[in-house]
Design a protein around this nucleic acid. Sequence first.
DNA 1: ACTTGGATCTCCT
DNA 2: GGAGATCCAAGTG
Length: 196
Amino acid sequence: MKKLTREFYNRDTLKVASELIGKILVREYGGDILSARIVETEAYIGAIDKASHCYKGETDRTKVMFGPPGYAYVYLIYGMYYCFNVVTEGEGCGSGVLIRGIEPIENIEIMSFNRYGKRLKDITKQQLKNISNGPGKLCKALNISKNENKLDLTKDELYIIDDGFKDFNLERSKRINIDYAEEAKDFLWRFTMNRL
DNA sequence: ACTTGGATCTCCT
DNA sequence: GGAGATCCAAGTG
């Protein structure tokens, strides 16, 4: 299976966000391959979106989102967690898609250790359920941090592939935790997977 | 299952 | 100084 191309990311952000549902996020490091199904995404379109880091223009932090599509934007939130985004559309747009939830496929054992410092057999049911169902959680599970910021998703060891999985319905809803964003908080820019 | 407070970095006013 | 694209442990129902 091939990595998604620059052309895939170089499209309308809402289209990319919706089509990323069901794809497989792959992370290679230390000689291992970790993979997981993407089940939740959110679109952020800087120019018209008060919830976006890019709304007020370019800063050092958001620079990569104004660059070409297909790159990783990783940022620190609340001082302790990282969030992973893919950059979309053309240069100068300040837009991207936040990956909010994934379900482990390969090497869940390593994800368990990254998250809890414990073997898979030693974590609780609740911990297993919460292993990668949030933006900060999935970054920890996949060992994604500041170092992975600005990686090229079409070339580097962090990328997304399509295995043709389609046994689900797509659901659209309002985005999470952006109450301050005025009219933008009602945009239906969150996409989730409902399995059949 | 749901609620609450604490941890603590980066950007902006 | 203050808020934020968050998570967890500890508590309650």
